[in-house]
Design a protein around this nucleic acid. Structure first.
Length: 236
DNA sequence: AACACTGTCAACCGCGCATTG
DNA sequence: GCAATGCGCGGTTGACAGTGT
């Protein structure tokens, strides 16, 4: 217990849950004097609570404009977006959500998004799942690309047949986006990026200093909603 | 039924900034 | 310029309810 706390107890400051009577006294005080001057609440009302405690109680519980009840999906979206932009600046986030308090948003975030980081083994398995998913997506896009190329070849052959006998058959102009796709697929580095994942065994273990990598990955995996902590990196 | 575990939320704590004398 | 004071903020704790075993 620190010096201030022991002094408070010596002076008879109350701590812990607020009673209905205390709430009424505080509410009446704010109605008469407005918010602020929290340290004079005790003198003027007889409440044996510190100014800090009074302010907290008013801001987080007694304020008439507070919105009670569950956070709505819309509010959750706003919280996620703002947290991605602002980080743990709960008061700033709360200002964008009328009727919600920083404490409420902070609690909500911790409860719903900041899940405990899984064990190293679990993390390695999640990583493997993610990499497999990436590989699947790569194979799908490769398959699609091959189909598209086949169709183009068929169309080209058809055109050539039709134009047979004419002086100069038109030269095919490849689609730019397809060229880009082909370039990407043919790029050894990009292939490497997707394919190396396959060889990761189920029980693989991450290296000891993977924190930064994991934080980035965690955000990516978070995208499918299956797991994750949102975008608050480096807090563990 | 009893116990352990987990989620939720009100409240407290410590720190830093702004204001005041 | 500086110390004292008030206030706001983010992090943490602890009580309680709900759920699982």
């Amino acid at each position: 217990m620190d010096a201030i706390s022991s002094l408070m107890l010596q002076q008879g400051w109350r701590k812990g849950p607020w009673t209905a009577l205390e709430d009424r006294l505080l509410t009446e005080y704010v109605q008469q004097h407005g918010e602020g001057s929290w340290n004079s609440v005790a003198k003027l009302t007889g409440l044996r609570r510190s100014g800090k405690s009074c302010r907290l109680r008013w801001v987080n519980y007694l304020r008439p404009d507070l919105k009670r009840g569950k956070i709505t999906p819309d509010e959750e979206t706003v919280i996620l977006q703002l947290h991605a932009m602002l980080g743990n600046r709960w008061s700033a986030i709360a200002r964008c959500l009328p009727g919600r308090t920083d404490n409420e948003i902070k609690n909500y975030w911790r409860t719903h998004f900041k899940k405990a980081r899984p064990s190293r083994r679990a993390r390695a398995q999640l990583l493997h799942q993610y990499q497999l998913q990436q590989h699947r997506q790569y194979l799908q896009s490769l398959n699609l690309l091959q189909q598209q190329q086949l169709q183009q070849q068929q169309q080209l052959m058809l055109l050539q047949e039709q134009e047979q006998g004419q002086q100069s058959p038109q030269e095919e102009v490849p689609d730019e986006s397809m060229m880009a796709q082909v370039a990407m697929m043919n790029d050894p580095q990009s292939k490497e990026c997707c394919c190396t994942a396959v060889s990761v065994p189920d029980d693989c273990v991450l290296p000891a200093d993977d924190e930064a990598i994991w934080d980035s990955l965690w955000r990516l995996v978070d995208g499918d909603g299956s797991c994750g902590e949102g975008s608050s990196g480096g807090e563990y």
